[in-house]
Each structure stands twice: as C-alpha cells, then as structure tokens.
C-alpha cells in the first residue's frame, strides 16, 4: 500500500514515541475517553489512522482540540500504546504550521470570567497555539 504521508508518519511516531503496532484493537482508549462525544476521530482511530498513513483528516479535525490531556487512555491501555501521545504529536504538527494557531490572543477576552485561573489560559495557549 502506497503511503503518501510516510515522512509525516515517521515524524509523528518519532516525536510521540508511540508504536501503533502494539495496538490489539480493543478500543479501551475510546471507551475511557472523557471527550469521546466531542470528537469526530476517536483515540483508537488516531492509532489506526496514523499507522495506515491516513493523517490528513486528523490534521484538520476538531478532535485535536478536544483531547483533555487527562492521560486516562495512556494509563488504561492494556498494550501500553499511549494514544494521547499520538494526539499531541498530530496536534503539534497542525498548529506548528504558519498561521495555524487554533487560539488567537484576540479571542481570549471573550472567554474570560472573574474566576478563571491563569492555569487555564496558559494551558490553552500551550495546547492550541505556537
């Protein structure tokens, strides 16, 4: 099977340290994911799609910004695949592109209220923008 995304795929696997071949397709990552219903591609699909080189749809998916980085899929995966690391790698590949920031500073004031902790802001910037 020709894989047009081979370079990107290798890069994602290298930076995430994930070996998708360990996956036994049990779906426990997606079973445990707290953001599942907000995602069009679910954790197990990230693993499968990166492995098969089908990466474009992931790069353009809002699923990237719904992962809560709760690491539950990392801890509960029986095979030690660690899907969240792959989601993080794909997200970085998306937002590192010029002008591809998902969160812009101008949008922030509208999101704030009096109590929101700084932690939420810096975290969101780390996750959504470069």
């Amino acid at each position: 099977m020709h894989n047009k995304n081979q370079y990107l795929q290798e890069e994602l696997l290298r930076t995430s340290g994930v070996n998708p071949k360990k996956c036994m397709r049990c779906g426990k990552c997606s079973a445990t994911c707290p953001a599942y219903d907000e995602m069009e591609y679910h954790p197990h699909q990230f693993v499968n799609m990166v492995e098969s080189g089908d990466i474009e749809p992931l790069l353009n998916s809002k699923s990237l910004y719904r992962c809560l980085s709760c690491f539950a899929c990392i801890d509960r995966c029986p095979r030690g695949v660690e899907p969240a690391k792959l989601v993080e790698a794909v997200r970085l590949a998306a937002i590192r592109k010029q002008g591809a920031n998902h969160l812009k500073a101008d949008d922030v004031p509208a999101m704030l209220d009096d109590d929101i902790p700084q932690q939420a802001l810096v975290s969101a910037f780390r996750k959504y923008a470069k």
Binding site: R66, C70, A72, L103, S123
Partner: peptide
C-alpha cells in the same frame, strides 16, 4: 476522572 480541564476555554459545555 477529568473535570474538563483547559477545554473549559474552548468548549464550556464539555
């Protein structure tokens, strides 16, 4: 289980 974390910024409903 997760409280929603920083996604509160992006998706308060979640």
């Amino acid at each position: 289980e997760c409280c929603g974390g920083y996604v509160a910024m992006e998706s308060p409903e979640l």
